[in-house]
Design a protein around this nucleic acid. Structure first.
Length: 774
DNA sequence: GCGGGAGTGGTTTTT
DNA sequence: CCACTCCCGC
């Protein structure tokens, strides 16, 4: 450890660290390149670090923080350092600790936007109409709450689903909009104009439950800073240095929040704001991130120093060249020229395969080959666009017995049994947590059905009591059937007992006690299904994971904010994940399957967001490629199963956009079927695109070609069916399939024009070449 | 309360 | 095609 960083007082506002900075050059600066060093040493004033993929961003970030501390520019508690994920925050803590020793405990303001928001909000909860022990509710609770709301408002849940409302409200919160700020147009988009009212009602409901959702952690904090200048002044004074990681992923609230704390263009403040990001790796616009935030940083913080980290330490020149060439097709970039030294390395291999199954066979065979040559599985990853693509790979890996792990799959704390157990714990700690109460009131089944719960609800509302307290009173009356009354009485008594015991019993033992006494463990033991033993294990794991926390309250806060549990990523297993989950990771070998038009770039994204959507897809491709250190393999299939039926596919435009000199293309035997002849002169991919087969494929693109099986005669997949106007191949009564309208029955034939009664879309007139037999 | 059958919809995801 | 939800009947 270098020196003493102990913070004299947490409330040391205005207190400068007085120990002089050490005179010798700190050891951690060695080995940084010029730009990295500049980013570390430019501590004062606004700084934008544009950190390209693999340019040592995390190192710069952690070294910078270490430097600020080492130079005695601030106490650990005076630094605000924000990340997006818990994983990133964890890593940052570990690395700073490794650089300068045990200061990390003092860094109370290093964390995710949400955890920092929660921390602030707890301090000033009353300003947001909450008590400081408010519960943080997850998406599950959120949706249950909205369902209740929709029900009381008599809104048809079929037409206006709760999850849609939840998504809308989340979106508004991400944009920093409170109910009154929601523009009329948007507010009317839900349930015939009830959107805004529902939002307001939902907020009221949260307040009465003393609860916040994830959006509130940011938006309510922002409101407090906006409306209470004294609070804002305190924080501005406290935070000597502000650092934000992954700035390209910030949304509107996060941006406004940061500008307030850091002091924007027109405001006072310290302006020691450093943001780090890469506009080329912005892949979360769809959930509210605004790349514009990074693009306009210099305007928001005048005099900002822009530092570009362009030297890549991760990938070979071939990989970097291919990725750079690809991303150049995007407009509106800040622009960076990544470079690297050394042997160009293998070219990117692009391979065309017959279908998804063959793609999976190919990938696993290559992985096994590499493994035989001494490469670890854990250094290889398969990155897919959408999780449904994983299935084919998993099937293959299981068949081969190839060890693999899925990164970013369903998470521990999202499992039903864990949530149930959590609800018991929450309710023990906070007897007014009605959402928790509702979740477990009849789990395990104890004869308290919907009707009884409804009665209890009404009773509780009439007396302004939380459900658990109301339960205690209702059992003194005759409002419930005897069986429910008895069960509820027992349940209420149990919670009273557990709350009581919780004051002296260690929280792990308390948890075991609760799970046993409430009958949850017995319920699982009695459950003969295959999943039950796993669920019991999960509960044991839950209790085990509580050990690292001091108290029940500490544990609950952690779980509500940190939904994932650290995964062991050291076993030698092949990694399988989505491209989104791969951001920030790196692997020697990266497999990129499914590079087909419609799948990647995703048709839906392009339909919904046009060019902006396409550019985001391209950035996703860029992220994928730049994960590779030594080799990247791209695959595209000629036929892909989509929702059960077979669809012929075209190679992704992104393949076209890869600079030819970094790419080597192979196309499987039989891919272009009988069209031999051009395979011989297929030296680069470009020539493939000029081939007759290719041209036909292009023409076929919009023909809505779909079949129920991969075509047996390959050439057919790539040819347009020409139709004779005088005689259609279809007759009345034929079942047909149309790309847009789905399945239907032919009700009339006029030359090549068909009248089809589609199962879902109703009667339409279509040209026969746009349908296939269904 | 659960099991079956119908109906529906089907990127990406953190907190 | 498949996974999930909802509703109905026992």
């Amino acid at each position: 450890m270098i020196g003493n960083y102990e913070d004299p007082l947490d409330s040391a506002f205005g207190h400068e660290p007085v120990t002089p900075a050490p005179a010798v050059e700190p050891p951690y600066l060695k080995g940084l390149n010029k730009e990295q060093r500049e980013a570390v040493e430019t501590t004062d004033g606004p700084v934008l670090v544009l950190a390209g993929a693999g340019t040592g961003k995390t190192r710069v970030l952690t070294t910078r923080l270490a430097h600020i501390l080492y130079m005695r520019k601030a106490w650990p508690s005076q630094i605000l350092a924000v990340t997006f994920t818990n994983k990133a925050a964890r890593e940052m803590k570990e690395r700073i600790g490794a650089l300068i020793g045990g200061v990390v405990e003092g860094m109370q303001w290093l964390g995710t936007f949400h955890s920092i928001g929660a921390r602030m909000l707890r301090r000033h909860a009353e300003l947001a109409g909450r008590k400081s022990n408010f519960t943080i509710i997850d998406t599950d609770d959120q949706i249950r709450l909205m369902k209740q709301l929709l029900e009381t408002e008599n809104i048809d849940e079929k037409r206006w689903p709760a999850r849609t409302l939840a998504a809308m409200i989340d979106g508004w919160k991400n944009k920093g909009l409170k109910p009154d700020d929601v523009p009329d147009g948007e507010a009317h988009g839900f349930a015939n104009g009830k959107g805004r009212t529902l939002y307001a009602m939902y907020q009221e409901r949260l307040k009465s439950l003393n609860a916040c959702d994830f959006g509130d952690l940011l938006l309510d904090t922002l409101s407090i800073l906006r409306e209470h200048p004294d609070v804002l002044a305190d924080y501005r004074d406290r935070f000597r240095y502000i650092l934000v990681d992954e700035y390209q992923d910030t949304n509107v609230v996060q941006y406004l929040w940061l500008k307030l704390l850091g002091g924007g263009a027109k405001e006072s403040g310290r302006h020691n704001v450093c943001v780090v990001g890469d506009d080329d790796q912005s892949i979360y616009a769809w959930r509210g991130a605004e790349v514009e935030n990074i693009l306009r940083f210099e305007r928001d913080f005048p005099g900002a120093k822009v530092i570009r980290l362009e030297r890549n330490y991760r990938s070979t020149p071939s990989i970097l060249g291919a990725a750079s060439g690809l991303i150049e097709a995007n407009k509106g970039r800040l622009g960076k020229t990544l470079w690297t030294e050394g042997d160009p390395g293998e070219k990117i291999k692009v391979q065309g395969v017959w279908d998804g199954e063959e793609e999976a066979r190919n990938v696993s065979a290559t992985a096994e080959d590499l493994h035989r040559q001494g490469h670890a599985y854990s250094a290889m990853a398969i990155l897919v666009r959408a999780s449904f693509q994983m299935r084919e790979f998993e099937d293959r890996f299981i068949a081969l017995g190839l060890p693999y792990r899925v990164i970013g799959g369903p998470r521990f704390y999202e499992r039903a049994e864990i949530r149930d157990a959590m609800a018991y714990l929450r309710l023990t700690a906070q007897p007014d947590d009605d959402l928790a109460f509702e979740r477990i009131v009849n789990k395990p089944k104890r004869g308290i059905g919907d009707a009884s719960v409804q009665t209890l609800h009404t009773f509780a509302r009439g007396r302004h009591l939380p459900l658990l307290a109301a339960a205690r009173e209702i059992v003194e009356t005759d409002e419930l059937p005897p069986k429910a009354k008895k069960a509820l009485n027992e349940l209420a008594a149990s919670f009273a007992r557990w709350s009581d015991v919780s004051r002296h019993l260690p929280h792990t033992e308390l948890a075991e006690m609760i799970l046993d006494e409430c009958g949850y463990t017995d319920m699982l033991k009695a459950d003969k299904s295959a999943e039950a033993p796993g669920r019991l294990d999960n509960l044991k794991e839950l209790v085990r994971s509580m050990e690292q926390f001091e108290s029940l309250a500490g544990f609950l806060e952690h779980v509500q904010l940190v939904m994932d549990v650290e995964q062991n990523e050291t076993d030698d297993k092949l990694n399988l994940m989505t491209l989104h989950a791969a951001k920030g990771l790196e692997f020697d070998t990266v497999f990129l399957p499914g590079w087909e038009e419609g799948l990647f770039p995703s048709q839906r994204t392009m339909d919904e967001n046009g060019l902006a959507g396409l550019e985001e897809e391209r950035r996703l491709a860029y992220v994928g490629l730049t994960r590779a250190k030594k080799r990247a393999r791209i695959f595209f299939a000629a036929n892909r199963r989509v929702h059960g039926s077979w669809q012929s596919a075209l190679p992704s435009r992104f393949i076209n956009e890869l600079p030819e000199q970094h790419v080597e293309t192979t196309v499987d035997e039989g891919f272009y079927g009988g069209n031999a002849g051009f395979r011989d002169n297929m030296s680069g991919f470009a020539s493939t695109y000029e081939s007759p087969g290719w041209k036909r494929a292009q023409a076929n693109k919009d023909a809505g070609y779909r079949r129920t099986r991969p075509p047996l005669i390959e050439a057919q997949a790539w040819s347009v069916q020409t139709s004779d106007p005088s005689a259609s191949q279809y007759a009345r009564g034929d079942r047909v399939f149309h790309q847009k309208f789905g399945y239907g029955r032919v009700t009339g034939v006029e030359g090549n024009k068909l009248t089809v009664n589609f199962d879902k879309a109703g009667e339409k007139k279509v040209i026969d070449q746009f349908v296939t037999r269904g």
